[in-house]
Simulated scan of single mutants.
Amino acid sequence: MAEVAISDAQERSAESPALAGLAAAEAPRAPAFIVTIYGDVVEPRGGMLWMGTLIDCCARHGLNESLVRTAVSRLVGAGRLEGVRIGRRSYYRLSEAARSEFREAARLLFAPPPVPEDWLLCLSEGLRDIDLPLPWARLAANIALAPNRDDLMPVDGILMRAKQLDGHGDLAVLAADRWSLPEVAGAYGDFLASHGGLRDLLARNVTLSPEVALALRLRLVHDYRHAALSDPRLPRAAYPQDWPAEEARNLFVCAYVGLSKAAEAHVGAEFLSPEGHLAPHNGETERRLFQLRREAAG
C-alpha cells in the first residue's frame, strides 16, 4: 500500500505544473469550447455525447454545470447542436452545418494544405456593394485581392492570377494592414506562451493521468484552432520574417501526438454515448495521428 501511495504522489507531483497551467489560464468561452470537445473527441467517434460527460469534461477547465447547460441550450437554439433524450439522459451531437464547419477546421488542424505561392485579383463594380468573405481583402472600391487557395470562397467578377515582382513595393506592409496580421501574430503568441511548457513536459517523458492528458489536449486544440483559423494563410512573402505560425504549428503537432495515447484512454473509459463508452480510437482518429506523425517526421 505504501508503494502505491508513493507512486500516486509522484504522479500528482509530475502533473502539478500542467495542472497549474490549466488552473491559471482564463476559462474558455463555454460555447466555443464545447464545439472543440465535439470536433476533437466526439465527432470522429460517432458524434453523440451524454450531457453528464460534457459537464464533467468542462469542469476541468473552470466551466461549471450551469454555464455548460446554458451554453448547450444556446448552441441548440443557434442550430449548432441537436439533442435527443433517451430515458432520463440527454445526449447531443453537432448539427450538419456545424459538422461541415468543423470538418473544414479539422482539415486545417490535421492535414493543412500547402502554402499558396501567388494571388487572385478580382475586378468588379459589384464589389462596391458587398461585404467581402475572408480571406478576400479590398484594395479599392472595385478591386479585391486574396491568396490563391483551393478552399477560397469565390466572388463574382473578372478573376486574374497575380504574382509579386521582386523588389517592387513592400508586400508585408500591405498585408499587415489589409489582414490585421499583428492581431493574428498575437493569437499565435498567446498560444505559444500558454502551451510552450508542454515541450519540456513531454521531453521529460512525464507520466500524465489520462484525464489530465485529455484536458491538456483539448485546450491545445481549442487555442491553436483559434489562432490558425484567424490566419488568412497568405503566400510566405507577405508575412514578416519573425512570423510565429511555423513555431506554433510545430508545438501543436508534437504536443497533440505526445498527449494522445493517454488522452484517448480517458475518452474510452469515461465518455458515454447512447451505445455505451466511446471508442478510445478508431480509423478516423488513427488517420489524424498518422498525418501528424508524418508531418513531424518530415
Rank of each mutant, 00 (worst) to 15 (best):
M1T: 13
A2C: 07
E3D: 14
V4P: 03
I6W: 05
A9R: 11
Q10M: 14
R12F: 06
S13R: 12
S16E: 09
P17L: 04
P17K: 06
A18R: 07
P28R: 00
R29N: 10
P31G: 04
P31S: 08
I34E: 00
T36P: 02
T36R: 03
I37F: 01
Y38L: 10
G46W: 00
M51L: 10
D56E: 11
C57W: 00
C58E: 00
C58D: 00
A59N: 02
L63G: 00
N64F: 01
N64R: 07
N64E: 10
E65P: 00
V68D: 01
V68N: 00
A71D: 05
R74S: 08
R74W: 01
G79W: 06
G79M: 03
L81Y: 06
E82P: 02
R85G: 02
R85Y: 04
R93T: 12
E101S: 12
R103W: 05
A105K: 05
L108W: 07
P112R: 08
P112D: 11
P113Q: 13
P116T: 03
E117R: 15
W119T: 12
L120E: 14
S124Y: 01
E125G: 15
R128Y: 07
P133A: 15
L134G: 14
A137L: 07
R138Q: 14
R138G: 14
L139K: 09
A141T: 13
A144G: 13
A144I: 04
P147T: 08
N148A: 15
D150E: 15
L152Q: 12
L152S: 13
P154G: 14
D156Q: 15
I158D: 15
K163V: 13
L165Y: 05
D166Y: 05
D166V: 09
G167I: 04
D170E: 12
L171T: 10
V173S: 11
D177T: 07
W179M: 03
L181S: 05
P182C: 03
A185Y: 00
G186H: 03
Y188F: 12
G189K: 04
F191H: 02
S194A: 15
G197A: 10
L201Q: 09
L202G: 09
A203S: 12
A203R: 10
T207D: 10
S209V: 04
V212Y: 03
L214V: 02
A215Q: 03
R219L: 07
H222M: 01
R225Q: 12
L229T: 09
D231L: 01
R233C: 09
L234C: 07
A237G: 06
A238I: 02
Y239S: 05
N250E: 10
N250R: 15
L251T: 05
F252T: 06
C254D: 13
A255P: 03
Y256M: 04
G258T: 05
L259S: 08
L259G: 11
K261G: 15
A263L: 06
E264Q: 14
V267G: 06
V267Q: 02
V267T: 07
E270P: 02
F271G: 06
S273P: 08
P274K: 08
A279F: 01
G283P: 02
E284D: 15
E284T: 13
T285H: 02
E286K: 13
R287A: 14
E295I: 09
A296D: 04
A297T: 05
